[in-house]
Write a protein that binds this DNA or RNA. Structure first.
Length: 279
DNA sequence: ACGAGAACCTGTTTGC
DNA sequence: TGCAAACAGGTTCTCG
């Protein structure tokens, strides 16, 4: 479900609702998700106060006081929503919940269980966490630009779509926004990474930032599973130019071509053969 | 070292 | 209508 814009939207919703609240109760309903829940998870949470909520790649970091960090990943189908102790009824695929002192229950729901929940005892050790220490650049940060992308793509023969989805290089860009960014940049998803010129890298980096920011402004994209923490839907799916539009006309004015769908690395890629010619 | 593909799991959609 | 196959927003592992 979630790429960077969706996770960012969830983080903001979490921050609004749970910052300053103290955890009074926590419970798991399953032995784990992609990995087993850590030992003593609930005991480590109870009594802590939520200090800040931060996003790193597609991971949500809930910083606790006096210490500790709750790490959450939504996988493909994860959702977080709020309820109240008087109204909450456990539903299928609710795997974890946390009750707080302002009459709030946070529920983690994930049918496919590709998500992750972990606890980091020492807040200073976040960067060394096994899931975080190998992550590449944040696309919206200044450390990511055309120059950096040009350097990373040297010596890489893999298609450029794979490279921008490679979290060791660049984080947060998933299957939807990879296709949308490449279309926006006018670059073929099949181009070998090392054939991109410096100016193409500059354009692509700009397109990635532009598309992600637009999607964040629209509250993310809702296809099937995704909703924000308040239950609202994202709106960016209405702004898709290529994703899920195979067979339809290319949206560029005057382009006679149709959007094509192909499989790359086992995932669907959407593109316009005319607007995204391979060098 | 790199890149392609499978695996993890459930629910929904598509095609015969 | 019914059933099986294909497919879905992510990440990690294995194999060539």
């Amino acid at each position: 479900m979630p790429e960077l814009p969706e996770v960012e939207t969830v983080c903001r919703g979490l921050a609004r609702t749970i910052c300053g609240q103290t955890i009074t109760h926590a419970k798991t309903y399953w032995e784990g998700l992609r990995f087993a829940f850590p030992r003593g998870l609930t005991e480590n949470l109870i009594g802590k106060t939520i200090h800040a909520v931060e996003r790193r790649a597609k991971y949500i970091l809930v910083h606790l006081k006096p210490k500790g960090v709750l790490l959450i990943h939504l996988g493909m189908s994860g959702r977080i929503f709020f309820s109240e102790p008087a109204h909450y009824k456990k539903a299928k695929h609710d795997h974890f919940l946390m009750e707080m002192d302002h009459n709030t229950i946070l529920v983690y729901h994930d049918p496919r269980r590709f998500g992750v929940i972990d606890y980091i005892p020492d807040s200073d050790q976040c960067d060394h966490h096994r899931l975080l220490h190998n992550l590449g650049a944040e696309p919206l940060s200044d450390s990511f630009d055309g120059e950096a992308l040009f350097q990373w793509t040297r010596g890489k023969k893999a298609p450029v779509k794979n490279t921008i989805m490679n979290a060791q290089i660049l984080v947060g860009v998933g299957n939807i926004y990879a296709s949308e960014s490449l279309y926006h940049a006018g670059i073929s998803p099949f181009s070998p990474s090392n054939t991109l010129t410096k100016s193409e890298c500059r354009k692509l980096a700009q397109s990635i930032k532009f598309i992600l920011q637009k999607a964040i402004d629209a509250g993310g994209s809702s296809l099937k599973d995704y909703v924000a923490t308040d239950g609202s839907l994202g709106r960016f799916q209405h702004g898709f130019k290529v994703y899920g539009r195979d067979g339809k006309n290319c949206p560029r004015q005057g382009c006679p071509d149709h959007i094509q769908k192909m499989t790359q690395q086992g995932r669907s890629t959407f593109y316009c053969p005319s607007c995204q010619k391979q060098a």
